[in-house]
Nucleic acid binder design. Structure first.
Lengths: 211, 211
DNA sequence: TTCCGGCCGTGACATTTGTCAGGGGCCCGT
DNA sequence: ACGGGCCCCTGACAAATGTCACGGCCGGAA
């Protein structure tokens, strides 16, 4: 039934690095049953471009300007439900997978999987199957969901830049004491011993994505 | 003189992400005058593999396990002076370019340059020319070399993890006061307002590479 | 309804961090 | 031989950070 005479699968590529975007296009174009119909470099260009070109499958990077790949996946699923989404990311952050699936992604692949498996992943996703890196799936279940409250995550996100408590308080329109309380809670929940370590741990676990 | 009848340029690819490595191979293999003869995923595999396969040009990523791309470039130049080196990196950190050139690289390309330019860069490097992203070159000259002393950079590197002063002192076999002094100096030189910000600034400028 | 948990704020407190002023040792260039 | 830079350490101090106990405001669950 998956005969080679079928119409090729139409692909949209989204990655902020033009070089890897073009390289992925070259790689996938080697497959006779795949054709790249669109390339974008920003998350907020995904939906408009998909409306124009009507791809069957969209490959989305997570780290992108404008809109991260998870949010772009959700927007794309809402706008064009027929289009499957395969998230391709650099980092195997446990939380990324969870967020991607909640956002409606059909597959999740990390960038250090062998190149030959990518085309298969695309075909599987197009066929309606779910594609997930098995080791990552196990890790995700082990790590569990974020223990951080929405506010705590927001403060940690703001703290990534390395500003002082006064900076954060100003940026978030909060009192300094409140900021310190949230930070203290986050430090406790992450098991960290100071702000910087808490940021690092939360980031590694993918707990800093939400809006 | 650059006739198409010449023997193809032999390439070695080094990138820790198998997917982009394979994709780059696909992209470059589209060019009739280029052929990929080796692929490695770690910096310390570059020289052994180059000895085996004798490439004309090596494309090295900077972020790699084992040995970073800059150090791999230096080792490769020392071991096989005939092999040209083109450094390909994700981040346009100003200091990376400087370090790469000091290490003997013949070209420097960031990953968000258009894909079609990569093959040209390879040909230029192979022809003995230097290839440098012009905007990045200007930025490098403006930013200048690292103002940090070797010790200060070392302390900042250790501080990336987010540990306390006591942790750093233990890891580096220094007194806590000394660590604080180095951190203070680094904070001053970077213009930061605390340790985390100093780490971020130094990292962005590529001042944290050395051994 | 009452409770509970998240959220915001206060104030006080101990600890950590950042700064400054010293002093001694080493190596290198003059 | 001298100066100058970097390194290592000490000690002391001010400022920032982290912790704790407290209370009030909400919205949802029991």
């Amino acid at each position: 039934m998956t005969g080679p005479a079928n119409a090729p699968i139409r692909l949209l590529l989204a990655d902020d690095q033009a070089l890897v975007r073009g390289a992925l296009a070259a790689l996938l174009s080697l497959e006779p049953d795949l054709t790249v119909v669109a390339e974008v470099g920003r998350g907020d260009e995904v939906v408009p471009e998909a409306r124009r070109t009507r791809p069957d499958v969209a490959l989305l990077d997570v780290e992108m300007p404008g809109l991260d790949g998870i949010a772009a996946a959700a927007a794309l699923r809402a706008a064009l439900p027929a289009c499957r989404v395969l998230v391709v990311t650099t980092f195997g952050r446990p939380g990324y997978l969870r967020r991607a699936m909640e956002a409606g992604a059909n597959g999740f692949v990390v960038k250090d999987t062998p190149a030959r498996q990518l085309a298969d992943a695309v075909r599987r996703v197009h066929a309606g199957l779910r594609v997930v890196d098995p080791t990552l799936a196990a890790e995700t279940l082990a790590t569990g969901a974020s223990p951080l409250t929405e506010r705590e995550a927001e403060v940690l996100r703001a703290a990534r830049g390395g500003g002082t408590v006064a900076d954060l308080a100003g940026a978030l329109h909060l009192s300094e004491g409140t900021v310190r309380n949230h930070l203290s809670a986050a430090i406790g929940k992450t098991g960290a011993r100071n702000r910087a370590e808490a940021v690092r741990i939360a980031e590694q676990n993918g707990w800093l994505l939400g809006e």
